[in-house]
Simulated assay, not measured.
Amino acid sequence: MKFNPISNPLDKLPEILKQNLKRNLCVCNEVKKIDIINAIANGATTLTKVRDKTYATSGNGCCTRQVERLIECIHSSE
């Protein structure tokens, strides 16, 4: 099964989730929000896949709910 990357994932996000893209969403591993969004747009459809690509959520997990929300928004209409 081939995955087609999402060309503009920001279009799928509500305005509130488009803020602070260059700030670390995962503070434990210093992963920027835009890097997580790009990983999701390029096929990371689960927390495990996001963690494998970015290391986000592999610290104390405080960003887990935010990453889940990004996955939900970006992949919701597929």
Rank of each mutant, 00 (worst) to 15 (best):
K53T: 02
V31W: 13
D35S: 13
T46S: 13
R51Q: 11
V31Q: 07
C28T: 04
A41P: 15
A41N: 15
G43R: 15
I36D: 03
T48E: 14
A39V: 11
N24I: 03
T45Y: 13
C26K: 11
K32M: 01
V27H: 08
I37F: 05
L47E: 14
L25M: 15
K49H: 13
K49T: 02
D35Y: 07
I34F: 06
N24R: 06
I36M: 03
C26L: 10
T46E: 03
T45R: 14
K32Y: 01
N42Q: 04
A39I: 10
I40V: 06
T45P: 07
G43M: 11
C28E: 00
V31P: 13
K32V: 00
T45Q: 15
A39C: 05
C26F: 12
E30R: 14
E30D: 04
I34K: 07
I40T: 03
N42P: 09
N29F: 06
D52Y: 04
I37G: 00
K32S: 00
I34E: 02
D35L: 09
A41V: 13
T45E: 14
V27K: 14
C28P: 02
C26P: 07
I37M: 04
N29E: 08
V50T: 02
K32R: 14
N24T: 09
G43F: 13
N24Q: 01
V50E: 04
K53F: 01
L47Q: 12
N42H: 15
D35Q: 15
N42R: 15
V27N: 05
K49R: 15
L25S: 07
T48H: 15
V27F: 04
R51C: 06
K53A: 05
I40F: 08
K49Y: 04
L47D: 09
G43A: 10
G43C: 11
D35T: 13
C26Y: 12
N38R: 06
G43H: 14
A41Y: 15
I40Y: 08
I36T: 05
E30F: 12
A41F: 15
N42Y: 10
A39E: 02
L25R: 08
I34L: 03
K32I: 00
T48Y: 14
A41R: 15
V50A: 04
L25V: 11
D35C: 12
D35V: 06
T48R: 15
I34Y: 12
T45I: 12
V50Q: 03
N42A: 09
L47Y: 08
K53W: 02
C26G: 07
N42F: 08
N38M: 05
I36Y: 06
C26S: 14
N38T: 08
T45V: 15
V27W: 10
G43V: 12
A44E: 05
D35R: 13
V50P: 05
K33W: 07
V27E: 07
K33L: 00
V31L: 03
I36K: 07
T48I: 11
A41D: 05
N29I: 01
K33R: 14
A44D: 04
C28M: 04
G43Q: 08
E30Q: 13
A41L: 14
L25A: 12
V31R: 14
N38S: 10
N42V: 06
L47F: 13
I34Q: 03
T46G: 06
K53Q: 12
T46N: 07
R51E: 08
N42L: 11
